[in-house]
């Protein structure tokens, strides 16, 4: 399953990242090297093994459903790169494309 330059471009799109041509070439080589090493897992028979997603056997942790104070608007907007009085401000969503 060799990774091609096209794969790298596709994954970059999914990850919302952009790279120069040079970076893409380097990433292609590095991902191939890393993934080739990871192919070793294919030598293991895992047909009867359940996937492990949580290392301590916890399930359905609930808390009581009561109101708790939330952060004031000013605090939330404190880290906004650009804001209006009450809102986060972003460039227009409907572009020129």
């Amino acid at each position: 399953m060799a990774v091609t330059l096209k794969d790298v471009e596709h994954v970059a799109l999914l990850a919302q990242l952009s790279f120069s041509e040079e970076e893409k070439a380097r990433l292609t080589a590095q991902l191939n090297q890393i993934l080739e090493y990871m192919e070793q897992l294919n030598s293991l028979d895992t047909a009867d093994v359940e996937p492990l997603s949580h290392v301590i056997e916890l399930s359905n942790v609930f808390r009581t459903d009561v109101n708790r104070p939330s952060l004031p608007r000013e605090a939330i907007l404190r880290n906004a790169p650009v804001r209006t009085e009450k809102f986060f401000k972003v460039p227009k969503v409907i572009g020129d494309r």
């Binding site: 399953m1 993934l35 990871m38 897992l41 294919n42 293991l44 895992t46 093994v49 359940e50 996937p51 492990l52 997603s53």
Partner: peptide, 12 residues
């Protein structure tokens, strides 16, 4: 091929 496989090996 990768993610689910790795979750299984994690259990092993």
């Amino acid at each position: 091929a990768y993610y689910r496989k790795a979750q299984k090996v994690r259990r092993m």
